[in-house]
Structure formats: C-alpha cells, structure tokens
C-alpha cells in the first residue's frame, strides 16, 4: 500500500501501516544523530527549544551551506540508524516520537518500544542525499550548531512529499530485518 501523510501522524494512521508499505510525508522533521540523542537525553525536556512530539525524527547529518539568505540544504540523506539503537528506546519514551526515518537495521529495543508506543521506523534510500534535499522546502531552525558541528547539530526542516519511505518496523512489532535474518541464519549455519 502507498500512503501520503501530514506530520504529526495520529495513532489511527500509524496503525494502518505494515512493513513493506510505502509512505510519503509532509511537515516538520528534526535531525538527530548520536551526539544529539545523547544531549537530548541528558537535558530536561522543558529546556528543549522545540517540540519533538509533533515532528518526525530524521537520522541525518546534512551537508548545509550558509549564504546571505540563511542556510541552504545541499545534500541530506539518512545516516546509519543502527548507531542510535543504544539511545532510541529511552528517546522515544522521553519525547513521544512515533515516526522515525533512517536507513539500515534497527534492533530489538527500538522494535519493542515502537510496538509499545505505536510508532514506526521507515527507511529512506541511504546515500540519496541530493534527491532527499529536493524534498526539503525550508530550514526552520538549527540548535547546538556551535557545540556539535554541522553533521551532529539538530536541524529543523519542513519537508514536502518526502519519500518513498519504506515501513521497515511497524507498530505491530513486525520488522523487515527480522524476517530477512531468518534466511541469513540458514545461510550462516550452512557456512
């Protein structure tokens, strides 16, 4: 199935999604990688200058360029989501995240937490940074740029029809990666 949703996406729509579905989203996303996850878990929720619960979390360290009109996105594909696995269960619970966009496998902690709190993890094509940048319509803000640098800072983007995203982990606890691993394990045991 193919869906087009505006962010934030309510529980009813999240529940429509199953692994393998294709989704396009429009609305506000915030980028966060390792350092930003760590920082936001350390901070008091009240001190965070934006509301993560009404945005999608995008695992991305964009390539940006500043000109006289402000920041411009050059290339902004997803980063390897597996690195955030050590933070993600706590992060989802603390900030009420129900949409995560990234690439590559996310593990058991994320899968179970998404199931518990009705969220989904969606994969965008890694390396397709120039194409992804074309879906970003506005750079709304950047936080902790000085402290964390361009790649690790939190960028707030407004996206339009960002996709095709593939639902890789759904709110029912199903995971594309888990399904594939069954086949891989058979191959490994042969080796």
């Amino acid at each position: 199935m193919e869906y087009h949703f505006d962010i934030p996406v309510d529980v009813e729509d999240i529940k429509k999604l199953h692994i393998g579905d294709i989704v396009y989203v429009s609305g506000t996303v915030f980028t966060a990688r390792d350092a930003a996850h760590h920082l936001m878990l350390e901070q008091n929720k009240i001190d965070i200058p934006f509301d993560p619960s009404i945005m999608a979390l995008y695992h991305c360290g964009p390539l940006m360029k500043k000109n006289k009109d402000g920041w411009k996105v050059i290339s902004a594909g997803p980063t390897t989501s597996g690195r955030m696995e050590i933070f993600e269960d706590k992060f989802i619970e603390k900030y009420g995240i129900n949409l995560i966009i990234g690439k590559g496998d996310m593990g058991e902690r994320t899968r179970k937490t998404l199931q518990k709190h009705s969220g989904v993890y969606m994969s965008y094509t890694g390396g397709a940074g120039a194409l992804a940048a074309d879906s970003i319509q506005e750079v709304r803000a950047v936080y902790w740029l000085e402290e964390l640098g361009m790649a690790e800072a939190i960028w707030i983007f407004v996206v339009k029809e960002f996709g095709p995203l593939v639902v890789a982990i759904d709110s029912y606890g199903e995971s594309i990666y888990r399904e594939l691993k069954k086949n891989e394990n058979i191959l490994l045991s042969k080796g």
Partner: peptide
C-alpha cells in the same frame, strides 16, 4: 518491488546530483 524502488531512488539521485552539481551524498 521495494528493492527496485531503492535502486530507482539511487539512479534518480545520481541524475539530480549531476544536473545540480551537488554532492550525491551528504556524507562527503
């Protein structure tokens, strides 16, 4: 299916990067 969509995105991205003279991936 999904695999074809991924490769399609990659090929589209290669075109966009070349036409707009931008790095194809944000991780340069």
């Amino acid at each position: 299916g999904i695999a074809k969509i991924q490769i399609e995105n990659i090929l589209k991205n290669i075109d966009v990067a070349k036409k707009t003279m931008r790095p194809m991936c944000q991780d340069t």
